[in-house]
Design a protein around this nucleic acid. Structure first.
Lengths: 237, 237
DNA sequence: GGCCAAAATTGATCTGGGTCAATCGCATTT
DNA sequence: AAATGCGATTGACCCAGATCAATTTTGGCC
């Protein structure tokens, strides 16, 4: 998907009533700082499938996800793809040492981000260690998730991968949408396969198997967890 | 391997002539800060196979690797192991949000670390944003490595995994020991297998295959890269 | 040097998940 | 409502890498 026209809201928003105020990178700022911060970011909308940034791009901006879901992925030269994560509201993207994004990110469905130009954002952090500390926390949390995912990719069976994915995804949505056994899956089967190191066919077959066993029900745009305990047992935590 | 008696040097060292002074977390400190910092850490030695900390342990210390190699790993309840990384001199271990180490670490061969009690170290960081920034850099670098490793685990063949491992390991040693086509491999075949998401047999066979093709020579305690270009081609970067 | 245990290699066989190939089920478009 | 087209499902078959099973090599240690 090539980037197309995006909608930019010139400045009709306030950080103070932003949906991710409490959980995002900006949760470390007080009211006074927030008013200054407000001028650094601009809301940008992306529609389904649009690429927000690419692996080889030079980093000119950081992004704070406000709404929607993004897939973060790396490609091998021959086209094989590994999705390294899904970004949700509150996630902060763009930190790197090389000066280039080291993965690509595109929108799954409509996405709104808060975009910060790199230089001014860097200057703003400079004398605000609280913000740096918050960014560090987010990085450490991601690192922990990354290590968990390595275990999944390297050492789990297809059944375990799929079961762990469903539970993990539900867990992430819990913080955003509250508890529910109905788990929306906005990403495609191909996305799930590329996240789990499987093929689309294996994901599909595993879903069907879980449904036949009464553990889940496949519904439009997601699944329903009929027997969470059984799925947890399969995930073999 | 169970922890046994470790040797602690009461205080016969100086940060200023520490081997990792330039690359580790302490590279962000000036000479004055360094003298204060010196009192926070103590050198601790571990012998081959000893566990430095375990996954479920409550974090009471941070560690700066000074010498030697460590394996960092997570275990599944049934004993399957995934090595999430190897730590080398200059690496900083122990950061987490949960208050517990989320992986285990043990010594491969003799290891020396600089150990910091969590609370005093935290206090020392408090008013030194440079140090925090350095820690953040290290975390971001690790995150990038973690994502690369996810691609390897999820989307590469056994041959590609082994070839990429040999090149990646050589690359890491380059910064420490200078360039060389002789690559020491202090870790066991089992460690390599658990790092690459393979079995020990597959690692062994792949080494043998690479040797038969004249790409490498298996030597005592490591390999020699006879044909780096060919290995790079196999790694399919 | 000789003995023992652990690590590594090699071979034979098996299988989980990949590959290839239809088919199905929708949502759009005409 | 027929045509289109894409994502998802299902089936048949295959193969890379796992498993099982011997050796062989290496490294202490008396």
């Amino acid at each position: 998907m090539k980037p197309s026209v995006v909608t930019i809201e010139p400045n009709g928003h306030f950080c103070s009533d932003c949906g991710v105020r409490g959980s995002a990178v900006c949760s470390s700022l007080d009211a006074a700082e927030l008013r200054e911060f407000e001028h650094l970011g601009r809301r940008v909308h992306f529609s389904s499938g649009e690429t927000v940034f690419s692996e080889e791009d030079i980093t000119t901006s950081f992004y704070n996800v406000l709404d929607g879901v993004m897939r973060l992925y790396k490609l091998l030269p021959d086209g094989r793809r590994q999705i390294v994560g899904f970004a949700l509201p509150g996630d902060f993207l763009g930190m790197n040492l090389s000066g280039r994004h080291n993965f690509s990110a595109d929108a799954i469905g409509a996405v709104t981000v808060c975009q910060f130009a790199k230089a001014p954002f860097g200057r703003f952090i400079e004398d605000r260690p609280q913000l740096l500390r918050r960014i560090n926390e987010l990085a450490i949390r991601e690192l922990s998730q990354a290590r968990d995912h390595m275990v999944l990719l390297g050492r789990r069976s297809a059944d375990e991968k799929v079961a762990a994915f469903l539970l993990g995804w539900r867990e992430r949505l819990l913080a955003l949408k509250g508890p529910s056994d109905t788990v929306p899956l906005p990403m495609s089967r191909q996305d799930i396969a590329d996240y789990l190191g499987l093929t689309i066919e294996t994901v599909s077959r595993t879903f069907t198997k879980l449904e036949r066993h009464g553990a889940i029900e496949i519904i439009h745009g997601g699944i329903s967890l009929l027997d969470p305990a059984r799925v947890e047992a399969l995930a073999a935590a």
